[in-house]
Write a protein that binds this DNA or RNA. Structure first.
Lengths: 176, 176
DNA sequence: GCTACTGTGACGCGGCGTCAAAGTCT
DNA sequence: TAGACTTTGACGCCGCGTCACAGTAG
């Protein structure tokens, strides 16, 4: 099968298949006399697997590793699964930030304290205790003080309390 | 304030600030005699806004547009909010695919029919009726037949039923 | 003179898309 | 001969990271 037809069948672009050939992920096993790429049924099977993995969000590198060496105990798949959880949570944080920005922009209101509570509950649900949170604040303050400040304000914490938390974080950091 | 200190305060890298300067997103208003970038308090305020928007997942282009022309009715923010929903749903689909792949790999079992049912329920919950699903199958078959086939199999639909669905999709597509 | 900063410019990443120039099939 | 395919190669995209080399502040 020729390249464009192969691409169409799998919902890919021609340039994607050219790319896969260039990096050695999928090199068609035959060439016509004119040098045209000919995809055999085995190539198509390999391509089908590649597509599945791509749709599952694996990188080209990971797919190459799985196809060449196999995936011992599903290590690669499990790692990607964890990454996906992290990515989704990060996007959900962005959602909340945007929602808050829109509220502030349209209503010009102060954010309510519920969000600070919600944030704490999320961290607790993730297994963090008070000590862990204090340590996390200290680390945040050390690495990016302004960002720390803006983050506290974004939780609906007032300027004074934010400065208090930051000063405590500084103390804690300097004691170590 | 000098560049590295500014970067540290906002949790950014020096190269990010160099980049923002190059593309004109944030150009410090002063330079020292030796040509060093000096960030004024107004620059820092602008940077704080930039950081907020970046943390909300906006592209550099969008941020530039908002900072220069404002965001009429929160159009940019609302668009990004919709995109985020789409992205999250896409990642969740990837999660389910990966989970299924791991199950198949570890248990070497056939996927159960529950997943086909679950898929249908999801689409119905999204407001799709039978007619819409038929149309969607036809479109899928037309644009990427192999991918359509693999998708049906991934739902735990057996080879025969998949071929049947695809042939119906073809008929439906050719009648239009 | 040492160290830690600063500048500019060039190149790299992933996963392709896009364009150009030339050849091939029908 | 037309036009729909194919080849290779080079360059572009985003949001920076990373290098090299040179100048500057203390």
């Amino acid at each position: 099968m020729l390249i464009t037809e192969t691409a169409r069948r799998f919902g890919l672009s021609r340039s994607a298949l050219l790319y896969y050939d260039r990096i050695g992920l999928l090199s068609p096993s035959l060439r016509s006399r004119a040098g045209y790429r000919m995809y055999s049924s085995k190539d198509l099977e390999r391509l089908a697997r590649i597509c599945s993995f791509r749709q599952a969000g694996l990188t080209i590198g990971d797919i190459g590793r799985i196809l060449s060496a196999g995936d011992q105990d599903g290590a690669v798949l499990n790692r990607r699964l964890r990454e996906l959880g992290d990515e989704i949570r990060a996007l959900q944080v962005q959602q909340r930030m945007l929602a808050r920005m829109l509220r502030l922009q349209s209503l010009e209101e102060l954010p309510d304290a519920i969000d600070k509570q919600a944030w704490i509950e999320m961290l607790q649900a993730a297994g963090m205790d008070d000590a862990a949170m204090t340590k996390w604040h200290a680390e945040f303050e050390r690495r990016a003080p302004e960002a720390h400040h803006r983050f506290l304000l974004s939780l609906g914490i007032c300027e004074d309390e934010a400065l208090f938390i930051r000063s405590q974080s500084e103390e804690r950091a300097s004691r170590e």
